[in-house]
């Protein structure tokens, strides 16, 4: 039997608030020191931007080529697993399908990572100052954009090819068109109850994750504006994203409740 006295929720809340205040104090102290180094930090980032601008073409090429190689390896492995799945016994199927899910998740994350990285690299050159600096910088930027477009096309096509491979072994998903804007909804319709439950669980965990991460990023954006004058845009965008995420979730809950109340 548990003899320990349980703390009331309000005491727990006060303790938590005190701990957060202490953390806030430590962080504030660290930030004030960091603020004193603002010039050095600003210079450090300026050097990073400058060197990324001058190496934009090789960097975007590297990301594109790595993305292509990674994508092809992943797709080849998935095709091999699909081939083995055709003749596998029930117990072996469980293991193979887990491997397929695991490798596919790496592939999808790799594909999205390559696109995000390509955007990030190109965005350092996406400034009027850089483009109008000289004909050479404008030309360099144009070449980087062309490679970036190739990267985007490939990754987009890769995701479609991945879906097609899955559809070849799971014909019940063949109604989902990967080129359609409603692909996710079409895919969901083809899922059975256990698969839907898995998607709902993952979506809810993603929502919980985002509702923790967005406020942290918002504070980081506010601090960076305070110390380095990075501008209000990031703060506004994150605040809007935070409100929208919460509103969309609650709206969905209310709509479902309404449907059930009406019967």
């Amino acid at each position: 039997m548990n003899t320990r006295k349980r703390k009331s929720p309000s005491i727990k809340f006060v303790i938590k608030m005190l701990v957060w205040m202490l953390i806030g104090g430590i962080l504030g102290f660290a930030m004030s020191w960091f603020g004193g180094q603002a010039d050095n930090v600003g210079q450090f980032f300026a050097v990073i931007v400058k060197s990324t601008q001058s190496a934009m073409i090789p960097l975007v090429t590297l990301v594109t080529v790595s993305g292509i190689l990674f994508g092809e390896i992943v797709l080849k492995k998935i095709k091999q697993i699909e081939e083995r799945l055709r003749y596998a016994e029930d117990e072996e199927c469980d293991e193979l399908e887990y491997q397929e899910e695991y490798i596919g998740a790496w592939g999808l994350n790799g594909s999205n990572f390559a696109m995000a990285l390509a955007i990030l690299i190109n965005s350092v050159g996406y400034s009027r100052n850089y483009i109008s600096g000289s004909r050479e910088t404008a030309f360099r930027f144009m070449i980087a954009v062309v490679i970036f477009v190739v990267c985007f096309f490939y990754e987009g096509l890769w995701q479609m090819r991945y879906v097609k491979v899955i559809q070849s072994s799971r014909p019940e998903f063949s109604n989902a068109d990967p080129s359609s804007m409603k692909f996710q909804e079409q895919w969901m319709k083809s899922c059975d109850e256990a698969e839907k439950e898995m998607i709902y669980h993952s979506s809810y965990r993603t929502y919980l994750f985002l509702s923790k991460v967005i406020p942290i990023f918002l504070v980081a954006a506010m601090l960076s504006n305070l110390l380095f004058d990075t501008g209000m845009l990031a703060i506004v965008l994150l605040a809007v994203l935070w409100i929208m995420t919460s509103m969309y979730y609650t709206r969905s809950c209310v709509n479902m409740r309404k449907k059930r109340a009406r019967g």
Binding site: D90, C93, E97, D192, E193, A194, E197
Partner: peptide, 30 residues
Amino acid sequence: NQTEMGKLAGVSRQTISLIERGDYSPSVTL
């Protein structure tokens, strides 16, 4: 096998496997 059972019940093989292992409780309909 699980695939054939899944086809008869209108669900995937994975779902049959999950039920058999006790990792998923099916709906009343299923």
